[in-house]
Write a protein that binds this DNA or RNA. Structure first.
Length: 589
RNA sequence: GGGAUCGUAGUUCAGCUUUGGUUAGAACGCCGGCCUGUCAAGCCGGAGGUCGCGGGUUCGAGCCCCGUCGAUCCCGCCA
């Protein structure tokens, strides 16, 4: 190319008038007036209007006439103020334009599948196929900038705290617990497989044993599970581990990191101390272990009133060990028509498997509609007083097993808040959820499984329960939740071989299996393992929050679809017979 | 593994249980023409369709039925 840029497309202002400059970029828009031609030239720094006048060079103007959107060009010209009344106050460079004296056409573009100026002109399917074009859009360029700035902020903050950055293997040993592994066949070791890491968990624990007491890594993790709007098969974590620390130390570090990133990237000041919520309390109050606390609407206990009412459904559930809980939507009863409540009921039944959704409304005289008729006058007044109900409030109830009741009401709480626009935007509400159960009973395999992972240590005061009542054991595990997203999660680890063996035993892994799977880690524990713990931030979710989007694909340069495919390069794909043969793999059927 | 929604010019959509019926429309983009101060430029004209794919019902299917593929959202799953 002849004309190499001397400035970018976002930096020229009135101060540059008279300067001769060269601009390189893509044509964002062409406006051909027959004589004078205007092109908006774009790069990732901004847009500048470049002007062709046939009086300057007729041949060049006719070449410019042919140019279309997204052609790549280089122009040389003089910066001039736009004529009176033609200043565009809507753009930073709107005061000036470049009157072109030389034009070099670097590459012409074919008609586009969608407009770079408006992402919405293409379906997501199409945009993913042409991801490199979507990445030219202003919106995605912003998202990628946020992502890039966050990498830098994290590295600076953690380095300043004395953390060392590591890389751990991507080809590792398959682990039996947790998510499904992505497997990589070994050519050299016939019939054997590597796994891609679900997280570098064991490596970072080994690094603690090696004495690197403050470790971090920005690392890709892989989980072969079904996807969601906030889940990708490969995703990035800020993985952190520390030695000689307790839970408070890790939470404090996570707080400093989160505050630093939000301040550095967004200029937002998060509170100096994040609220800490007990897991049990989170479930009872919000029906979720990752509550969105930007709005209230807590779940309330209703069993005592249900006992006194003449409503068989609630009583039967309570008698069989279930729960009755409710939530109050203030001043919106008039918006919940029969059609709306039926719709909510159907939705909860289908997705959360509950048997029904009950409600009543409040008017000047007492309760009305729904299940109000099952409550005596006196009981109605008691409910109105106890829950300080007012006219036009509506109270919803779910009565089912504990797990279903909490989950369904938690989902309803979010849905109602969305519908009623009760969630403030541009606000961030971080909190820690702590004291997760150590174990979870798995119906399918008829055994306990580790709720977090099998290296999570129990709270010291709960160790006795490991023998007497394992389900009650609380873990030294914690999550950082912001606006309803699980942004980070971690735990204080087990660091003695005895406790680790006990844990394996509890989750039904016998010594031989534990030895085969984690023998290397157990062996390492024998050579002086320090107490340690850590936390991992879901990097993509963090960026979603910082960038203000609710779609994880928006913050990943080349994301995959819900079926874990890449529409752009068509991965995964079939491979040749030769490749398979080398790996000693034969496809069945 | 399950449920829901969607699939019609290059693209976004309308048309689909109001009635299944001649030639499937609009906008943006694209191509051509006019136009020397626009910035969503304007005006005139034009090209562009296997209605995702397969089967069925029917004299006749974009429309009704069954299957299938893909995208999205959700439940299960995701330590």
């Amino acid at each position: 190319m002849q004309l190499k840029r001397t400035v970018n497309c976002g930096e020229l202002t009135g101060n540059n008038v008279g300067e001769e400059v060269i601009l390189n970029g893509w044509i964002a828009k062409n406006r051909d007036h027959g004589g004078v031609i205007f092109l908006d030239l774009r790069d990732r720094y901004g847009k500048t209007q470049v002007t062709f006048n046939p009086d300057v060079d007729g041949e060049m103007a006719s070449r410019a006439k042919r140019l279309g959107m997204e052609d790549v060009i280089a122009v040389k010209g003089v910066v001039q103020t736009r004529p009176d009344g033609n200043i565009n106050t809507g753009m930073p460079t709107g005061e000036i334009e470049v009157l072109v004296s030389e034009l070099e056409i670097l590459n012409e573009a074919e008609p586009l599948p969608f407009l770079i100026s408006d992402r919405e002109t293409g379906s997501e399917e199409l945009r993913l196929e042409y991801r490199y074009l979507e990445l030219r859009t202003k919106e995605l360029q912003n998202f990628m900038q946020v992502r890039a700035r966050t990498y830098q902020a994290v590295r600076t903050l953690l380095s300043d705290e004395g953390f060392m950055e590591f890389e751990t293997p991507v080809l590792m040993k398959s682990t039996p617990e947790g998510a499904r592994d992505y497997l990589v066949p070994s050519r050299i070791h016939v019939g054997k497989f590597y796994a891609l890491p679900q997280s570098p968990q064991t490596y970072k624990q080994l690094l603690m044993i090696s004495g690197y007491d403050k470790y971090f890594q920005i690392v890709k993790c892989f989980r072969d599970e079904d996807l969601r709007a906030d889940r990708q098969p490969e995703f990035t974590q800020i993985d952190i581990e520390m030695s000689f620390v307790d839970q408070d130390d890790v939470l404090a570090l996570a707080t400093r990191l989160a505050r630093g990133v939000f301040s550095e990237v967004l200029g937002v000041k998060l509170p100096a101390v994040f609220p800490i919520l007990d897991y049990k309390e989170a479930m009872e109050t919000y029906g979720s272990d990752k509550p969105d606390t930007r709005f209230e609407m807590p779940l309330v206990e209703f069993a005592a009133y249900a006992e006194k009412a003449d409503f068989g459904v609630f009583k039967d559930v309570l008698a069989s060990g279930g729960r009755v809980k409710g939530l109050i939507l203030k001043n919106a009863a008039d918006k919940i028509s029969r059609k709306v409540s039926d719709g909510l009921t159907e939705w909860l039944k289908t997705y959360y498997g509950i048997k029904g959704l009950a409600f009543f409304k409040v008017d000047g005289n007492g309760l009305m509609g729904g299940i109000s008729k099952f409550f005596e006058e006196e009981l109605q007044q008691e409910i109105i007083n106890d829950f300080t109900l007012e006219t036009n409030d509506i109270m919803f109830f779910v009565s089912d097993s504990e797990a279903k009741t909490l989950q369904a009401l938690g989902a309803l709480r979010l849905e109602l808040a969305k519908r009623e626009s009760l969630i403030p935007e541009n606000e961030f509400r971080p909190l820690f959820v702590v004291n997760f159960p150590l174990l979870d009973w798995d119906e399918d395999s008829g055994r306990y499984i580790a709720m977090h992972h099998p290296f999570t240590s129990p709270r010291p005061e709960d160790v006795e329960l490991m023998t007497s009542d394992p389900a009650k054991v609380r873990a030294r595990a914690y999550d950082l939740v912001i606006n309803g997203y699980e942004v980070a999660g971690g735990s204080i680890r087990i660091h003695t071989r005895e406790m680790q063996n006990r844990m394996f035993e509890l989750i039904g892994m016998d010594e031989a299996e534990a030895e085969a799977r984690f023998g290397f880690l157990l062996k390492a524990f024998r050579y002086g393992a320090p107490p340690h713990g850590g936390i991992a931030f879901g990097y993509d979710r963090l960026i979603m929050l910082l960038a203000g989007t609710d779609n994880i694909r928006d913050v990943i340069a080349f994301p995959k679809t819900t079926s874990a495919a890449s529409l752009m390069d068509d991965a995964p794909s079939t491979v040749s017979e030769d490749q398979l043969k080398e790996l000693h793999i034969k496809l069945i059927k």
